[in-house]
Simulated assay, not measured.
Amino acid sequence: MSTVSTPPDASAVSNPPAPARRDAEATKTAILRAARYLLARQAHADITLKAVAERAGVSAPLVLKYFGNKDALFARVMSFQEDADALLDAPLDELGRHMVRHVLVSQRERGADPVLRIAFAPLHGDHGDVLRANFRAQVTDRLAARLTGPEAGVRAELAVAALLGLGVMFGIARGSELRALPVEQIVDRYAPTVQTHLDGRDPAQDVS
């Protein structure tokens, strides 16, 4: 009795599942989060890769696999480049809404907003200086370069200041009334404050 073999599913061959990549991304995210947590509480020199690995729930060799060495890991931790890519990823006339929504969703879904870590930069010490320099270059200066009109630098810093204030109240102070509101309702009420700075409008002109 002959049997008919079933040909392999072409889609399974050409589109293999990708859990390994998702696991790798989750692991890298956990390592970065652990390093940020420790850096906010200890001097850079006192943090070991073993401590980062234990905090992240992984092995120290895995930290080395993904980041190479301690200096490379903390250079990544102290950079805002990727965070700014996501924060500023919208046309200028929609940027206020996008930035506010981004901060709120980051807090609500991940419990953190990487841009907000500038609030924990030490006042003294080399890594505090590096964090502040990176934040200026990669967030506020980059935003200012997109703005037109006078005082672009001041307006960029005011817009980011408004955003950070919202992040602190929502994610750190955990204002109960604010957190009870739907995200889009907060966006509707708060985004115009941020957008006013981006547009360079005089708030007094918006008062009828």
Rank of each mutant, 00 (worst) to 15 (best):
R189E: 13
L143P: 00
R41N: 09
L178H: 11
A133E: 04
L178Q: 13
I186R: 12
L143Q: 03
E157K: 04
F74G: 06
G57H: 04
H127G: 02
V183C: 11
G171K: 06
G96L: 08
A156M: 06
D83Q: 03
E157R: 12
L178M: 15
D202I: 04
S14I: 15
L158M: 15
L32N: 05
G175W: 06
V115W: 04
R21S: 13
V183D: 02
A56Q: 09
G175P: 01
V139L: 05
S176K: 10
E184Y: 11
S106K: 00
T196K: 08
V105R: 14
A56I: 14
D46I: 01
R21T: 07
L32V: 11
L143M: 06
H44D: 04
V194W: 08
I31H: 05
P19R: 08
G125N: 05
S106A: 02
A26K: 15
V207Y: 13
Q185C: 03
I172F: 11
T27R: 13
P16H: 04
K70I: 00
L32W: 02
A75V: 01
E151A: 14
S11W: 10
E94R: 13
K50E: 12
L131Q: 11
I172Q: 14
R21I: 06
Q195E: 12
P91M: 01
A204D: 15
P182T: 09
